[in-house]
């Protein structure tokens, strides 16, 4: 690969301007200025030159290439956030082929050397391209994961309806991961607000199967262990039928058709304690009089 090193060392400026022209013509700039692009390609060429001077036969995964790899990862990360498409990212390195091959053709002595040099350069540039793509995909995946997490947290708001009454309007499908978050936030909120009644509203849950029901029952049981009553509300007619058809046992759980019904019951329950106590006090003093 000696010729490639020679090109990178002696014809760097020439190669750079040729490559930059291709880059700007081929791809969308997506808000990046030509100067930034030129700067990035210049850095890449310099790192590549340094690496090849260190180890003439270095492939992408060689230790000498570590700075090149890091640089490509950084560029891919930045472009992934700027909304570049995968092919645009790939074009960043693959577009280096034409200007490099042109120069190899001029310098090579005979067909044998040319094909060997071109093959070596292709292998290297392909490796760099794949590495960039991998980095791009990784950073996209991270982005998706982060958004998933955000959604998970956003979709489980626990609201206080009254003193001692919490409501948890569930929207979307309930899976294990989500149930875990729901359970944790609800229990935490019960502790914080010292609420005795929690209403889980499933109006926004599209389907209830045995698994979802099991998740709901777990949450209800955990709340009960902490000393809070749970009411499940917002059960649509179809869902009520599904629950019966599936034979899901909900006898231990208080259920209501609507959130309003559940709220009424919750109010009764929290007031009941005070009212019952009052009633008893009255009966007790009455008993004394007799």
């Amino acid at each position: 690969m000696s010729l490639l090193v020679e090109i990178l060392t002696k014809q760097q400026a020439d190669l750079l301007s040729d490559w930059n022209r291709d880059l700007v013509n081929q791809t969308r700039t997506n808000g990046l200025s030509e100067k930034e692009i030129a700067n990035q390609s210049k850095m890449l060429l310099e790192y590549l030159r340094d690496a090849l001077q260190q180890d003439g036969n270095a492939m992408v995964d060689a230790p000498a290439m570590s700075r090149v790899r890091q640089f490509l990862v950084d560029v891919a990360d930045a472009r992934a956030r700027q909304g570049f498409t995968p092919s645009e990212i790939a074009a960043l390195t693959f577009s280096l082929k034409r200007p490099v091959f042109l120069r190899l053709e001029k310098l090579a002595n005979g067909a044998d050397q040319l094909s060997a040099e071109i093959w070596a350069a292709t292998e290297l540039i392909d490796g760099l391209g794949l590495h960039t793509l991998n980095a791009f995909l990784r950073s996209r995946e991270e982005l998706i994961k982060r958004q998933e997490q955000d959604m998970l947290e956003l979709s489980t708001p626990v609201v206080q309806l009254w003193k001692g009454i919490l409501a948890l309007p569930l929207i979307g499908t309930l899976d294990s991961a989500r149930t875990q978050v729901v359970m944790e936030t609800l229990l935490q909120k019960i502790v914080e607000t010292e609420s005795r009644v929690a209403i889980i509203d499933i109006t926004g849950v599209p389907t209830v199967d045995t698994l979802v029901a099991q998740h709901l029952l777990k949450t209800v049981t955990a709340a009960r262990l902490m000393g809070a009553d749970c009411i499940i509300s917002g059960i649509r007619p179809q869902i009520a039928q599904t629950i019966v058809h599936l034979g899901i046992e909900l006898t231990d759980v208080t259920t209501r058709a609507t959130l309003a019904g559940a709220f009424q019951l919750a109010l009764q329950r929290t007031k009941l304690n005070a009212a019952a106590l009052h009633e008893f006090e009255r009966a007790k003093s009455g008993a004394k009089e007799f």
């Binding site: 777990k218 049981t221 955990a222």
Partner: peptide, 20 residues
């Protein structure tokens, strides 16, 4: 009356299948 069970403890017990 068992009082003041922590959320983490409640979740653990439920996961262990112990609803007491």
């Amino acid at each position: 009356v068992v009082v003041g069970m922590r959320p983490a403890v409640a979740i653990t017990l439920v996961e262990l299948g112990m609803s007491l």
